[in-house]
Design a protein around this nucleic acid. Sequence first.
DNA 1: CGGTGTTAGGTTATGGTTAACATATTCAGG
DNA 2: CCTGAATATGTTAACCATAACCTAACACCG
Lengths: 341, 341
Amino acid sequence: MATIEDVAKRAGVSAMTVSRVLNNSGYIGVKTREKVERAIEELGYVPNALARSLRFKTTHTLALVLTDITNSYFTTVARGVEDMANARDFTVMFCNTDESPDKEMKYLSVLAQKQVDGVLLVPAFSSPDPILFLKARGIPVVVLDRRIPDVEVDTVRTDSVRGAYQITRHLLDLGHRRIAILTGPVEISTSTDRVAGYKQALLEAGLSEADAVIMGGAYTISSGYQLAQRALALKPTPTALFAGNNFIAIGVLRALRDAGVRVPDEMSVVSFDDLPSTTVVDPFLTVVSQPAYAIGEQGTSRLFDVLAGRAQTAPLDLVLPAELIVRQSSGAPRRKDQDMG
Amino acid sequence: MATIEDVAKRAGVSAMTVSRVLNNSGYIGVKTREKVERAIEELGYVPNALARSLRFKTTHTLALVLTDITNSYFTTVARGVEDMANARDFTVMFCNTDESPDKEMKYLSVLAQKQVDGVLLVPAFSSPDPILFLKARGIPVVVLDRRIPDVEVDTVRTDSVRGAYQITRHLLDLGHRRIAILTGPVEISTSTDRVAGYKQALLEAGLSEADAVIMGGAYTISSGYQLAQRALALKPTPTALFAGNNFIAIGVLRALRDAGVRVPDEMSVVSFDDLPSTTVVDPFLTVVSQPAYAIGEQGTSRLFDVLAGRAQTAPLDLVLPAELIVRQSSGAPRRKDQDMG
DNA sequence: CGGTGTTAGGTTATGGTTAACATATTCAGG
DNA sequence: CCTGAATATGTTAACCATAACCTAACACCG
């Protein structure tokens, strides 16, 4: 790769003159400019951003650290991040943590070394450590999707409590009284928030804590499958299942299919997180849909505000609304199943 | 962010000594090492990878340039790339080109400036320019998913010809004689390769060029929808539709649903590219499935070989087999539709 | 014609790290 | 006790680009 010095030599000028041509700064003679531009062309020179970054202490690079890019929800978040970053001439590094705090920490260390200008983090775990690590090194962070307790940090997420409330309410309105929520790990805020919204709706409908059926597992298909099997074994059997995310929903639907339970006739199923419209012919599942793209976009936008010193001191907690989309997977419970309110 | 000089001062030694501790090189006294390690700890120092990269001319960073991370196929490719890169302590920058050669070129220029060690490219267009650009700057490239004619470059892709042959053969074996292929842009090799495999199967089955129904559009859902509508309007109507990729397949299935055409009873549908198993409860579509993860992995592996100087001179053209997965969307044509072979 | 401002370009130092070289201390062996 | 090897640490220069400073030629004014 040619350096600025190579260009300078070929054009018969100093490196500084080339730099001036590149950055359109200072005075440059017309003929000199031409000579330099020709030399740049001939050598296929591109300036070395490392050297620049070393001086200016900015790399025009962000990092997106998430649990698994393979989850369509995060794919969409990632796309939102990339589009927003690209619009400001930033590039994005991406890192999959697979929900492992170790892997997450290793990545953050590498990212700090690479001097990324900022980090968008979907935390693997509800620990303040990753945030503190970045803060100690002066690297701005915005947390996406999940809350982290006990630490001041900008956050952009979906209103899980209200979303869960709405969809539970929808089931209650249909007449369901035995609704099980099959959700992710208790260490992740989305999980606990969704349970909170679920409970709130139950209580408001005159049900008691004892009527809540809360089953925690992981945000995976296999976990959804197992949780659904366990839910089917309960006496009395729930009339509706609320999946904590899209992976769990798929697992639940497969378990019901394998058990020969028809949806929604014999069992209503709803889910947090929609399935990507690009892979589904006929959307069937009643869901609360998260504004994934907007979360990526808004989070990145906030990061730019911080980088520009435009951010207020108070940490942002931007909570975007989820959208209830009623489809065919939820219906009234069969009469014989119905409780007497 | 603390520098090595800050650490040196705090430990009362020179920067070089700190460097030696960091890299475990040369001789270090026990007590000195302790002092330095304490200083590193206290300051939360991490070495500046920019400065290192400037010296060593390697950034431990790869770039993945693809058309759209939102396509589940590319998401999986990306995951393969990231896992392989991560295993070697490399990070990955990702860039969506949206099939725009302009955007692609802009990205490549930025990546060259940022001194990435190598690029994994899903080309937006069948032009050698991006390859030549990178080669001129000494940046290794591996092309993924698509071929680029008229240029020597390492390539890792699916055997589109054979995959298309197999699935067309499958339809022919079921008795179909009027099979339309609805595919992507003619400028993209996957598209032309799939058409080639399709034709080959037809000819082998004793059909003629005239029996081929080839409709080109874009690799999008809306294009699939429109192509299917046009295919339905043909006289005689095809008895089977072969979608060129997963997006087209979704569009086709929606068009058939809207037209009230039942699959597979009234129309068989097959597709190149599977839908992600993580978003489908009951896989229904007969497909040739591409080894997306392996493509990412193998491409990255090849890139590492090149970086290590371990690559043979001859450009690699690694063609991975596609897998025919027969499901319910393909069946025998209805009798009244059947041609007399 | 001297002074001043404009134009055009060069020189030096800096950013953080480390290879190469230089210097200083310790210790074993003769 | 001296010599030379082994050990321990420091100094300089280089990677590449550029801000800050400096020099020089020229035009224009009074």
